[in-house]
């Protein structure tokens, strides 16, 4: 059987907020190591890779590997029935066709449970090689969210240019052009830092709407890491973490736009 107890059930709500725009349904793969999900959007332009480590859960038991196919809109409905500080337990019997979500209020005087039907999903998995990226940018996640939101007003694409000077985000459209440049800084408040690890300068162009969807994960982590190399997909990574617990990560891969 599978049973996982999450002290802060609100974490799963935030994870769902971060993937529900891109995916209608997805398989959660349960193993001894934890809960994992890998799924592409319908147009195969972006991929979500979620890893929630077993150690992040208050209790975690997985007797045999199983894959739980879920409709994410249904899961959103169920998670709406919980409070952010509820303790969440997810459980399923081996070979079951339902998964159960149990919400317990912090003081223990309210317990609710919801069964959700599982789906058989035939999802394609991609092999993603370990890559040394030519530039790795670490920046505040709310800043990333604001930049992609602001530039999406201009055009369907955002160019990200990373060089020794820093990072430049640009977008051009009918109303004109927007450029936002970030210099590497060493402000005393390390949360505001933009740090660039550069092997070689890279400029790549990506569809604005996917970057906007990725930015929905900004609530999970104060930091985001963007990794780029010439002519390969961008990786946007958010840690799933609170001040006292490291749950894992959510990574998004986004195929670039190229000259026709």
């Amino acid at each position: 059987m599978f049973e996982a107890r999450l002290a802060e059930g609100g974490i799963l709500k935030k994870v769902l907020d971060a993937i529900k725009e891109l995916l209608n349904e997805a398989s959660f793969d349960c193993s001894e190591a934890g809960l994992q999900l890998q799924a592409m959007d319908n147009s195969h332009v972006s991929l979500v890779s979620l890893n929630l480590r077993a150690e992040g859960f208050e209790n975690y038991r997985c007797d045999r590997n199983m894959s739980m196919g879920m409709n994410l809109a249904s899961l959103v409905k169920i998670m709406k029935c919980s409070a952010n500080d509820d303790v969440l337990t997810i459980k399923a019997q081996d070979n079951a066709d339902v998964v159960t979500f149990v919400f317990e209020s912090k003081n223990g005087d309210r317990v609710s449970d919801f069964d959700m039907k599982l789906m058989n999903l035939d999802q394609e998995h991609l092999g993603i090689p370990e890559t040394d990226y030519a530039c790795v940018i670490k920046m505040p996640s709310n800043e990333f969210a604001k930049i992609v939101r602001d530039l999406s007003q201009f055009g369907e694409s955002i160019a990200i240019a990373c060089s020794k000077q820093g990072v430049k985000f640009s977008s051009t459209g009918d109303i004109g052009t927007g450029n936002i440049k970030l210099a590497q800084n060493s402000s005393a408040d390390s949360d505001d830092k933009v740090v660039v690890d550069l092997q070689e300068p890279v400029t790549l162009t990506f569809a604005s709407r996917y970057l906007n969807s990725f930015a929905k994960a900004a609530g999970l982590s104060e930091k985001v890491t963007l990794s780029m190399s010439p002519d390969v997909p961008l990786v946007v990574e958010f840690k799933v973490a609170t001040s006292d617990n490291d749950y894992g990560y959510i990574r998004y891969y986004l195929a670039p736009k190229i000259e026709d």
Partner: peptide, 14 residues
């Protein structure tokens, strides 16, 4: 003109 690539151009199915 720029065209959108898909992930299949970069990663293989497992």
């Amino acid at each position: 003109m720029q065209k959108q690539t898909t992930l299949f151009s970069f990663f293989s199915r497992t």
